[in-house]
Design a protein around this nucleic acid. Sequence first.
DNA 1: CAGCTTTAGTGAACGGCGTAAAGCTTACGG
DNA 2: CCGTAAGCTTTACGCCGTTCACTAAAGCTG
Lengths: 261, 261
Amino acid sequence: MPAEASAPTGGGTQAQAGPDAAAAPGRRERVREATLREIKDNARRRLAAEGPSGVSLRAIARDMGMTAPGLYRYFSGLDDLLNDVRADLFHELSAAVAGAAGPLPEDDTDGRILASLRAFRSWALAHRAEFSLLFATPAPQDAPDPRVLEAGRGFAASFFSLFDRLLAERRIPLPADDEIGPELRERLDAFAAKTGFTIDNASYGALRVLMSCWVRLYGLVSMEVAEHMTPIMGDMEPLFEAELQDILSPAGVAYRASGQD
Amino acid sequence: MPAEASAPTGGGTQAQAGPDAAAAPGRRERVREATLREIKDNARRRLAAEGPSGVSLRAIARDMGMTAPGLYRYFSGLDDLLNDVRADLFHELSAAVAGAAGPLPEDDTDGRILASLRAFRSWALAHRAEFSLLFATPAPQDAPDPRVLEAGRGFAASFFSLFDRLLAERRIPLPADDEIGPELRERLDAFAAKTGFTIDNASYGALRVLMSCWVRLYGLVSMEVAEHMTPIMGDMEPLFEAELQDILSPAGVAYRASGQD
DNA sequence: CAGCTTTAGTGAACGGCGTAAAGCTTACGG
DNA sequence: CCGTAAGCTTTACGCCGTTCACTAAAGCTG
């Protein structure tokens, strides 16, 4: 077994004596893990401070007291690092959205949804550069990274699963299935398949409403993060709350002012 | 140097004694204007082909058979060039949106609005990189350019003025003014002031509906340009048409399928 | 016409970037 | 104890934006 198994990323399988030595990370890997974190932390710092274009391998290495090529032991290049950060960010965003619903009672479906949607906005505003890294239009040529795609799918799933219970309660005044054209149904089928919904527990009408919710939330928050309207409207929070009300009412969610107001 | 007018293009048209010579651009400035156009055209080409990060002064200069510092006679730097392009793009986008309504009869308010909103989407999809240059989140530190701001305001004005006639016809089932909170009213006042609306010809309810339309259209098109949903939904056109219907119905616009279907 | 001034453009240079190749040092595993 | 691989540095190449000193031409003016 010593012959091969020289995986580039992590060798840790040594442990000649202990049977459960797999649990022990081993000094080597602990150090490696720490360096990896340090790299990503520095990337994040620069990202938050200067935006996506401010993240450079040379600058990160400089901050860490090493040289840029050394980072290639940890990432195959700048893009790889950025994609790794993107995946992390998607997970954090998912956690923030899910976490906001956590403290509320299980049966307060409306409250949980409201809290989660507000959490999405709050996270975006507190992490503008990170948000834009996640949702920016990619350059024409570069293919999406599988880790990012996966993490993005995870976020989508966690977002839409907010509405699971709402759908189960069946109190949504949904558009009838036959109001939805055949092409759109096809698309919604594809969407449902990839996000884990089935048309059994979510009608076409429900999926349609969910998509609409997401589109409106996304549009509103994107605009606010990009400060598109800010110069002509100032603080966007009143508009957000008003939109929130409108966005959720077709889904049968009763609006309720934010708790900490 | 032989005496005069050996230019192959045949210059030397204007007399030096003409009193209204101010109207004649003068050879010098014509050449300058041409070079300026060439620079911007090359920038546009690279933008469309490789995205915003593919636009570089050195590459543009190389394409034109000159060196990068020469471009500084025309722009004060890369940012300046990009901002100039951004302003142009806003004007083009405005023209595309307005132009789509042009062929339709003046009194077909609904048709004109539908055509314009579809034109916005079409333009964005046909100019992904340009769209993302216009609407991308700016880096934290860089201040917005006044030309871009002005052009952006122009676009907003041209967009919202689509609805002028609709408002005048007063057939919108608007939310009553008193359904709108005081903070939001304040924001809508600011918005109306900067876009040329007055609360006289557009109630708070109308402004509210307009904002909602824009947010939804923007969210949908941004997602489509960024190909956020494309991997899990495929072609977004059916969703766009369905959303279009929903977006415009609170504004009292009757949906109608696209003309060229 | 000469002579002066303004303009367009070049060449060299500085510092920053991503990244590839080669070499050095240290720790680990047999 | 020695081979080997991991971690990291040095060097180097080719991009990038931008500055500065400079030339050559064009235009204006007396």
